[in-house]
């Protein structure tokens, strides 16, 4: 029988990384992701891996840059303010096409904000928090089990495309304990890395860099990046579809808020509308096509977030005015309740 473990989302992410073959972790403490760094401090040495509590988030992500350039599976984790600090290097990693995993257990912002749960880093995660034309792949779990599952996938996808991948959780998923089963017999899809820095014995030297100072070179490189991003958009979209076919009101929510929306659908008995839900699992690439398809038959879409309205902009871009797109959100640690969402549905008034 598969062994169930009662773990926090933070711990589940950490153990899943070990199973995925990650042996190099660099991080800096910040609430609410401390259980992740704490877990790996003990666990990494047990499997012969490297764990460094770095002097800053900047140093941590740059150590990740080094280990990724050296060809290893590597990761860092933090929460919102710490992720802001890492953005420069995330841009460099996208520009140097280095695979890695970054876990963000979001907390309230802006600034020091608070330590309660939030989804206000959506823009930062999917629009590129650093400088330049780049994308990182963003996966958003809604349960502790899914956190573990997406961490395995994140390493494979990162290797496949030579691109950073972020697992975007929130304080609630990081802190929440749920039963989780680890797929220890899982086969990791580790890509060959002929580009990695290993010493140039028997081959031409490798250079890992994002600098293209000769006029014209950078545009050629950017074009290549955009072609890669197109391939990712074509192949890596993930979502959960809950009764959207034929639904006249569709809720769109990811992560923690999607669980509340499921509760709403479960409780909803008025019979006036047929309710459905779309849960984007990959936030970039975003399930644009699916939402467009929904908007062709739905009377209304409501996006539910723990933010002042961020993902709703991507929903509107997908819908292109085919149906009204409403928004309900809470900020600063407020979590939308089923009652509040039901009220919002009632207010649609049709």
């Amino acid at each position: 029988m598969e062994t169930k473990h009662l773990l926090t989302g933070n711990e589940a992410a950490a153990e899943a990384a070990i199973i995925a073959g990650c042996r190099y972790y660099y991080g800096y403490p910040i609430t609410p992701q401390n259980e992740l760094i704490n877990y790996l401090a003990t666990r990494m040495p047990q499997v012969g891996g490297t764990f460094i509590q770095a002097e800053s988030e900047l140093a941590a992500i740059n150590m990740v840059y080094g280990s990724a350039a050296a060809g290893a599976r590597t990761m860092t984790s933090s929460s919102s303010p710490g992720i802001s600090l890492k953005q420069e290097c995330i841009s460099y990693m996208a520009g140097s096409e280095l695979p890695c995993l970054i876990v963000n257990m979001q907390r309230g912002g802006p600034g020091l904000g608070d330590i309660s749960t939030s989804q206000a880093d959506y823009f930062q995660a999917v629009k590129g928090g650093g400088h330049g034309d780049y994308r990182i792949i963003v996966l958003a779990p809604s349960t502790v089990q899914e956190t573990a599952d997406l961490v395995y996938d994140a390493f494979d996808i990162a290797d496949k495309y030579r691109n950073p991948v972020m697992v975007l959780g929130d304080a609630q998923i990081g802190q929440l304990m749920e039963p989780v089963v680890f797929h220890k017999e899982r086969k990791n899809n580790v890509a060959d890395k002929p580009w990695a820095l290993t010493g140039s014995k028997g081959r031409k030297k490798n250079i890992v860099k994002s600098f293209y100072p000769v006029k014209g070179e950078l545009e050629v490189f950017n074009k290549k990046l955009q072609e890669k991003y197109k391939r990712i958009e074509d192949n890596e979209v993930l979502f959960e579809d809950l009764n959207t076919n034929g639904a006249d009101v569709v809720l769109v929510a990811y992560g923690t808020t999607s669980r509340i929306c499921k509760d709403v659908i479960n409780k909803y008995e008025s019979g006036n509308h047929q309710l459905g839900m779309l849960r984007p699992i990959s936030l970039w690439p975003f399930p644009t096509k699916k939402i467009r398809e929904i908007s062709e038959s739905a009377k209304a879409i409501i996006t539910i977030e723990m933010s002042a309205g961020q993902m709703v902009e991507d929903v509107r871009l997908a819908v292109e005015g085919r149906c009204p797109v409403h928004f309900y959100g809470r900020t600063g640690g407020g979590i939308p309740t089923p009652k509040e969402i039901l009220k919002k549905i009632d207010e649609l008034g049709f």
Partner: peptide, 15 residues
């Protein structure tokens, strides 16, 4: 003529 990496400004020791 050997393997080389760039690094963000100031971070070569971390890399």
């Amino acid at each position: 003529d050997f393997d080389m990496s760039e690094a963000p400004h100031g971070r070569p020791p971390a890399v």
